[in-house]
């Protein structure tokens, strides 16, 4: 059964339709202690001459803007840190209780959390496409496979370890 029909009370016609207007009227009356004019003024002809001064400033702006894409930097920093951690962990054969990967990641997060880059997420979002981001977008030169082999040659002592899956 409809709840409405159970209640033996009625409202005047159009009561709910006009409720919001009446409420807003009442609210606006209670705001009367707040002055409507903010009292801020501008110098004479400020808006008329604004275009000229803006033009001057635009002409003095450097043409090329460099923009540091922070998310990309975070991604690179995280991947470099991950590579370094793997390499360091392996070489040191460390049995320390502290997990290097946890420590480094939280450090990186804390760093970006606590340092003010003077860019809001909106500003980053305005200029940064979030799709189709490749590591090659932010490394000026690609990593050559020879360099990778050299790196592994210098930093990895036991090549069999790298091929466990393959050997099995």
């Amino acid at each position: 059964m409809n709840k409405k029909n159970k209640i033996p009370f009625k409202t005047p016609e159009g009561y709910f339709d006009s409720f919001e207007d009446k409420l807003m009227d009442k609210l606006s009356k209670t705001e009367s202690t707040i002055p409507k004019d903010s009292a801020f003024k501008v110098p004479d002809n400020y808006f008329e001459s604004f275009n000229e001064s803006l033009k001057g400033k635009l002409e003095n702006e450097p043409k090329v803007i460099s923009f540091f894409p922070i998310k990309k930097i975070i991604a690179v920093a995280a991947s470099i840190a991950a590579i370094a951690i793997i390499a360091l962990n392996y070489n040191w054969n460390s049995s320390s209780e502290l997990s290097f990967s946890d420590l480094a990641n939280t450090d990186i997060e804390a760093y970006f959390e606590n340092n003010d880059f003077e860019l809001s997420p909106y500003e980053i979002a305005e200029v940064l496409p979030v799709t189709n981001t490749e590591y090659s977008d932010f490394l000026s030169s690609p990593i050559e496979s020879d360099n990778l082999l050299d790196y592994l040659n210098e930093n990895v002592s036991d090549f069999d370890e790298l091929n466990i899956d393959y050997n099995e």
Binding site: F40, K41, Y46, F50, S53, L54, K57, E126
Partner: peptide, 21 residues
């Protein structure tokens, strides 16, 4: 006012440079 003028100019410069985005 002076700060507002600075920020307004910077805003339009930013708009101008980022309109493609």
């Amino acid at each position: 006012h002076d700060d507002a003028d600075d920020v307004l100019q910077n805003t339009f410069i930013k708009v101008y440079k980022n309109i493609d985005g």
